[in-house]
Amino acid sequence: MSGRILELVARIHLDWKRQVARALAPHGISPKQIFLLRRLKEAGGLAPSAIADLLHADRPSVTSLLDTLQRAGWIRRGRDPENGKRVIVSLTPEGADKLASVPEVLWRSGRTAFDPEACLEPSEQKELLRLLDKLQRALAARA
């Protein structure tokens, strides 16, 4: 493989992420922060290791992100009631308020003002998804 496919995927992702970051900046939140707040709301709480996996990030980077979110008052770290040695990160009421204060049109995939997937026909979207999933599975099998 020439690497062109992954180069294009990476470029598309970065360009899209920059557009979302610019839209979110006036609200004082980054794409990674709002993504994590959404996941915490959905899950009710996550261990830092699960957050690292979710964000494809190393533990020190996740710790830094969690420190920032905790200082903002959007998350709390507490002990897992089932395993007192384990930490669970959960959304605070202030974090839920922050999440609710940011219009979904700025960050919600498929609902944003500009949807880059809209240039593809439904059949093209389905085929691209199938092919990218195949690439991801092949990479995961080698990991």
Rank of each mutant, 00 (worst) to 15 (best):
K126Y: 09
L40Y: 02
A23M: 12
A72N: 13
S123C: 06
K126R: 13
R11M: 14
Q33Y: 00
K98V: 05
P103E: 06
Q125D: 00
I12D: 05
R38Y: 09
D53Y: 00
L132V: 09
E42Y: 09
A25T: 09
Q136E: 10
P103C: 06
E127I: 09
T68C: 08
R11L: 15
R142P: 00
R71A: 14
K134W: 08
D15T: 13
R4K: 14
S101I: 05
V9L: 15
D53K: 06
I5L: 13
A23R: 14
T112P: 01
I34F: 05
D97S: 14
L6R: 04
L99F: 06
I12H: 05
P93H: 04
A143D: 14
I34T: 00
E42L: 08
A57P: 00
V20N: 02
K32D: 15
C119Q: 11
L37F: 04
K32Y: 09
R38W: 08
E104T: 08
T92E: 08
I75C: 08
L66T: 02
A100K: 15
R142N: 09
D15L: 14
R111Q: 15
E121A: 15
L128K: 01
L106Q: 03
E42F: 05
A140Q: 12
L14N: 11
K85W: 10
R71Q: 15
A138F: 08
E94N: 12
S30R: 14
H56Y: 07
I34E: 00
P60K: 05
D80I: 10
G44F: 02
P60G: 01
T112I: 11
V9K: 08
L69M: 15
A10M: 13
R79M: 07
L120T: 07
L24H: 07
I34R: 03
A50L: 04
L6Q: 10
R142I: 10
D115Q: 05
A25S: 12
E117F: 06
V9N: 07
D133L: 03
A138W: 05
A118N: 02
P103N: 07
S49G: 03
V89L: 01
R76C: 05
T68I: 13
R142M: 12
D53M: 04
S30C: 05
I34V: 11
R59Q: 10
L46I: 02
S90R: 12
S90N: 03
S30D: 13
L106Y: 06
I88P: 01
L99H: 04
A140Y: 06
G110V: 00
L24I: 09
Q19H: 15
L106M: 05
L106V: 01
H13R: 14
P116R: 04
